[in-house]
C-alpha cells in the first residue's frame, strides 16, 4: 500500500489525532502563557528573583521528555492530565524569559512619564508595559509552541493524545505492514501543524500589535 493510499484509508483517525494534537498543544500553551507571563511580571523588576525563576524553568527543559513524562506517573498517572502538565513545564522557559526581556526593554522614559502622569502599578502594566513588551512575549510563545508540538508526540508513551500514537505504533511494529507509513504520517502531521501554528502566530501578531510599534 502506498503512502497516499494508506493516508486515504486511515483519514478519519489521522484527522482525529491531528486535531487532538493541536488541542493539547494549544491548551498547554494557553496555561503556560498565563503562568509564564505572571512569573515574568512578578519578577522582572528584581534581578535575583528573575534569575532564580529562569534557572528553575531551564531545569525542566534539560530533563529528557521521555523521562519527565515517566516521572509524572506516580503523581498524575497516565493520559491527558500528565501530558498537559509536562508540556506546560517545557513551554515555560521561552515565555518567562521573553516576558522578562520584553518588560525590561520598555523605554525608561516611557515608564517614567506614565508614572509621572499618575498611572498606578497595574494600570501602567496593563496599558503601557505589557502592550509594549507584547511582540517579544509573543515570540516566546511561538517558540514554546514549536517545542511543545514536537514533545507532545512523545506523550503517547503515557497514553497521551495526538499524533505520537501513530509514531510509537509504527515503531513498535517495524517490519510489519504500513510501519513506515504510520510513522511518516505522525511526523508529517506534526510538521503541518507547526506550519499552521506559525501562520496563526503571524496573523495574531498583526492583529494584536499597534501600528505604532509594528516593525
Amino acid at each position: 500500500m502506498s503512502f497516499l493510499e494508506y493516508l486515504d484509508s486511515r483519514s478519519d483517525i489521522v484527522v482525529q489525532l491531528t486535531v487532538e494534537h493541536a488541542e493539547v498543544v494549544a491548551l498547554s500553551i494557553l496555561i503556560a502563557t498565563v503562568i509564564g507571563v505572571a512569573l515574568g511580571v512578578a519578577t522582572y523588576e528584581r534581578d535575583r528573583a528573575s534569575r532564580l525563576t529562569l534557572a528553575i524553568c531551564a531545569i525542566f527543559l534539560t530533563i529528557p521528555s521521555l523521562a519527565l513524562f515517566a516521572l509524572l506517573i506516580p503523581q498524575l498517572g497516565i493520559g491527558y492530565l500528565p501530558t498537559v502538565v509536562g508540556l506546560v513545564l517545557y513551554a515555560l522557559l521561552p515565555i518567562v524569559r521573553n516576558t522578562i526581556t520584553g518588560l525590561r526593554q520598555v523605554d525608561a522614559a516611557v515608564v517614567e512619564s506614565a508614572r509621572g502622569m499618575g498611572m498606578g502599578r497595574w494600570r501602567r502594566l496593563r496599558r503601557i508595559e505589557l502592550p509594549l513588551a507584547w511582540p517579544v512575549i509573543l515570540t516566546g510563545i511561538r517558540v514554546s509552541t514549536l517545542i511543545t508540538l514536537g514533545i507532545a508526540a512523545i506523550a503517547a508513551v503515557i497514553n497521551g493524545p495526538g499524533l505520537g500514537e501513530l509514531i510509537f505504533s509504527g515503531l513498535s511494529r517495524i517490519g510489519a505492514v504500513n510501519d513506515v507509513n504510520e510513522i511518516l504520517t505522525g511526523v508529517l502531521g506534526v510538521m503541518v501543524l507547526a506550519l499552521l501554528f506559525d501562520l496563526a502566530f503571524f496573523v495574531l501578531r498583526r492583529v494584536t500589535t499597534s501600528p505604532g510599534v509594528r516593525a
Binding site: 523605554d107 522614559a109 512619564s113 502622569m117 496599558r127 503601557i128 502592550p131 499597534s210
Partner: peptide
C-alpha cells in the same frame, strides 16, 4: 497627586503604541 501635576521630560516619553 500626579494627575493634578503636568509632567514633561527631556526624552518626552510618548507612548509609542498609542
Amino acid at each position: 497627586l500626579r494627575r493634578r501635576i503636568g509632567y514633561v521630560i527631556q526624552q518626552v516619553g510618548l507612548f509609542p503604541h498609542m
